[in-house]
Computed example of a mutant assay.
Amino acid sequence: MVKFNDIVGKAGKAASQAAGKAKQYIEDNPDKVSGGLDKVGGLVDKGTKGRFSRQIQQGRDLAKDKLVHGRSGTSPAGQPAGTTDPTVRPSTGETFDTTTVRPEADTTGRGPGQVG
């Protein structure tokens, strides 16, 4: 009878070996990996009909920086990976000023803290 811990141990060892082989392949073939990332990015961009081109390009560039160039995980905008810039609309990439506060249409003419 095979024990659960034995299976987990074997799976962990196999995953570690696969990661080592993947790392070695990337080191030996950076041009192929870079080209593959470009190809996948193009296919995803085509599949989404260009709606997420900017995000796809950023993800591709981040993957190239991390995998091919061995750079730490920072986004092309210089932010830590996984963070977003609150001044950029994700859908369009348009930037806007976050210091300007405009009252909503239904609150015009009310003083601070006034309700109704």
Rank of each mutant, 00 (worst) to 15 (best):
residue 3 K to M: 10
residue 3 K to C: 08
residue 3 K to H: 10
residue 3 K to R: 13
residue 4 F to M: 00
residue 7 I to V: 15
residue 7 I to P: 02
residue 9 G to Q: 11
residue 9 G to D: 12
residue 10 K to D: 00
residue 10 K to G: 01
residue 12 G to P: 00
residue 12 G to S: 06
residue 13 K to T: 09
residue 13 K to F: 08
residue 14 A to S: 06
residue 14 A to W: 04
residue 14 A to C: 05
residue 16 S to D: 12
residue 18 A to Q: 06
residue 18 A to H: 01
residue 18 A to D: 03
residue 20 G to F: 04
residue 29 N to C: 02
residue 32 K to R: 07
residue 32 K to V: 03
residue 32 K to H: 04
residue 33 V to T: 00
residue 34 S to Y: 04
residue 35 G to L: 07
residue 38 D to S: 04
residue 39 K to L: 07
residue 39 K to W: 05
residue 39 K to D: 07
residue 40 V to F: 02
residue 40 V to P: 01
residue 42 G to L: 08
residue 42 G to A: 13
residue 44 V to K: 01
residue 47 G to C: 09
residue 47 G to F: 09
residue 48 T to K: 00
residue 48 T to R: 00
residue 49 K to S: 13
residue 52 F to D: 04
residue 52 F to S: 01
residue 53 S to T: 15
residue 53 S to H: 08
residue 55 Q to E: 05
residue 57 Q to E: 15
residue 58 Q to V: 02
residue 59 G to M: 11
residue 59 G to D: 12
residue 59 G to C: 07
residue 61 D to G: 08
residue 61 D to M: 12
residue 61 D to F: 09
residue 62 L to R: 02
residue 62 L to G: 03
residue 62 L to H: 05
residue 64 K to F: 07
residue 67 L to K: 09
residue 68 V to M: 05
residue 68 V to Q: 01
residue 68 V to C: 05
residue 69 H to V: 02
residue 69 H to N: 14
residue 69 H to Q: 12
residue 72 S to K: 12
residue 72 S to D: 06
residue 73 G to Y: 10
residue 74 T to Q: 10
residue 74 T to K: 13
residue 76 P to T: 14
residue 78 G to N: 12
residue 81 A to P: 05
residue 81 A to L: 14
residue 82 G to E: 07
residue 82 G to R: 09
residue 83 T to M: 12
residue 83 T to V: 11
residue 84 T to A: 13
residue 86 P to H: 15
residue 89 R to G: 06
residue 89 R to Q: 14
residue 89 R to I: 15
residue 89 R to F: 11
residue 90 P to S: 10
residue 90 P to Q: 11
residue 91 S to K: 15
residue 92 T to L: 11
residue 92 T to A: 08
residue 92 T to K: 08
residue 93 G to P: 10
residue 94 E to T: 12
residue 96 F to N: 12
residue 97 D to R: 09
residue 97 D to Q: 12
residue 97 D to M: 11
residue 98 T to A: 15
residue 98 T to G: 11
residue 98 T to P: 14
residue 99 T to W: 02
residue 99 T to R: 12
residue 100 T to C: 08
residue 102 R to S: 13
residue 102 R to Y: 05
residue 104 E to R: 13
residue 106 D to Q: 13
residue 106 D to E: 14
residue 107 T to N: 13
residue 108 T to D: 05
